[in-house]
Design a protein around this nucleic acid. Sequence first.
DNA 1: AAGTTTAACGCAAACGTTTGAGCAATTTTA
DNA 2: TAAAATTGCTCAAACGTTTGCGTTAAACTT
Lengths: 341, 341
Amino acid sequence: MQSKPATIKAIAQILGISASTVSRALHDHASIGLTTKAKVKKLAEELNYEPNQTAIFLQKGKTHTIGVILPELAEDFFSTAVSAIEDTAYKKNYTVLIAQSHDDEAKEKLLVEKMKSHRVEGLLVSVGKNTSSYQHFEDLKKYNIPVVYFDRIPGIPNIHYVACNMETGTIEAVNYLLRKGHRVIGMINGPQAMVATGERREGYISAMTKNRLKYDPSLIVSCDLTEQDTQRALEQLLNNKRKPTAIVTFNDYVALFAIKHAKKLNVKLNEELELVSYANLPLINYMDNIPVASVEQFPYLQGQKATDILMDLLHHKTTAASEPGAFYKVIIESQLVENKR
Amino acid sequence: MQSKPATIKAIAQILGISASTVSRALHDHASIGLTTKAKVKKLAEELNYEPNQTAIFLQKGKTHTIGVILPELAEDFFSTAVSAIEDTAYKKNYTVLIAQSHDDEAKEKLLVEKMKSHRVEGLLVSVGKNTSSYQHFEDLKKYNIPVVYFDRIPGIPNIHYVACNMETGTIEAVNYLLRKGHRVIGMINGPQAMVATGERREGYISAMTKNRLKYDPSLIVSCDLTEQDTQRALEQLLNNKRKPTAIVTFNDYVALFAIKHAKKLNVKLNEELELVSYANLPLINYMDNIPVASVEQFPYLQGQKATDILMDLLHHKTTAASEPGAFYKVIIESQLVENKR
DNA sequence: AAGTTTAACGCAAACGTTTGAGCAATTTTA
DNA sequence: TAAAATTGCTCAAACGTTTGCGTTAAACTT
């Protein structure tokens, strides 16, 4: 049993027929006799024949591999998304190559090269939070490697993507806080480079003005999503002329940092200050005081959709990449969920 | 630029030399002239030549791919471990194929077949919580595919593995609770099939008896790690003749279920009941009351070590797989960390 | 100067599979 | 019954690399 795996050649030799006949027989080709087919399949079964994917890929010039580049696999949002990507790709017999940029633009560029040298047929990308140029991704078009962005998408035209519309979720979040009686609502937003930052901002403004409240720019402060900068942002808000009684934070990690720091500053959470966040972490629900609500971002769904789109792109290889307006833009409406306690 | 990637053949043709010369030139083979080498390398650079891995793998009969089978990628412990596996394998230019069993033994068997058909060179495995037979993994030995288990390891001899020694961590945990004055300490343990269940049990007994306290078997109840069964286990403990004032839970997920249910039962956490858990979730630290301490399990380190071992196994292909006692057994001592608040 | 070494390269097979083209029998058609 | 169509199979090339073995010409021996 320590022998090498069975090959088509071996089967052919044993049966005294040619390799091409065996190959066709296994594929139920019309021009092969039924008896021969039966014999071949029987022997293949007995020998536990498994087609050598490497050989097939070489011969077909395909790798049946897609790549995924994302900031941090250990972040709950991404591991769930990858879980979906794996599941979806698996069904189509695609192999998934995962790589983490750790939010480093230089590493991102390196990874794109790596992906190219691995001959991935397509790429799923969630860009790093500080990435400002997307040229390294866009260059792939020249190699006919389609790219589908998900969640953290670049703010440029003519791309395929699936993402949550953070605007609607933010509107819901602000409305929710307004209904609870809050009038001075702060926001700890993300880096300006991120599309989601703009959407949250728009949502905030939209909700405020629609409720006939004036929009106070000093209540929105951006941060780079690190713990340190979150602390600064929180303090800035707490020291604002109009001190907020509620804050919408960019995501759950930021919320955690804020919570931690607020405790240190002896701010009474849920009395002096209520938080609403975006659901990146599943167990925030179990936490004692905070946040009161979260905007769901559907990581599994996003991963699934993005993979579906990529598969579609791969199977309808429109060499006319210049077709204008032919871009997938799947927008999932985010949704506010009140955290039960 | 939409042309196919450059090949050795193409380079050879342009330069009017043979493909073998080009290949050797690129590998700095001794028998190629310096001027030729220079010319080849220059042109390769210009054409953005990248070796076709598929062709190399076929020719060498290797895939440079390792597989990972684990229960649930979205669980924090595993996503962190995979993060380490990716990073480590990446450096050795190996490709990682990930698959989730969702704790289903049947699916696990299917995945092993899938991995075999993908010709993985080795496998990293964390077994499902209900898996009782390990034959599907052990069969891989016959195909010369080494298997390294990590974290959730089978309780059978002659395997390679890296895992945390839960016994020491448990001893520390129980000692910690004893020092805090607790005398009646309960334990919500895992399924009997899991090795870690036995270790936790041994640690518990060991800590109690070493402290001259008698071991009361009714204080250890096992559960299947689901929310429902955790609730049952908690109630069983709370209704026990000797009602525990502290409980060691199998992991953070179980702890969360227990916390949730305890609140519902109006049990005052941290007054009537203190919890110690095992660190699967990073942000348990941010939670308000619970648990008071966690046993760290070093997911990144485990993933790293396991990959290192597999790499070693792959490069020292001892065809004499029957060498007795030649098995890697890396045991990481678990460690109690008190959760600061 | 004839023989031997060395340097630099080419030839061809191999890895396992797919596929267009070809060929020999058998069956169908007119 | 001869020509045409069908059936069932084989040949050989191709995908991009690597590598053992040859081959040639130049450089070195004595």
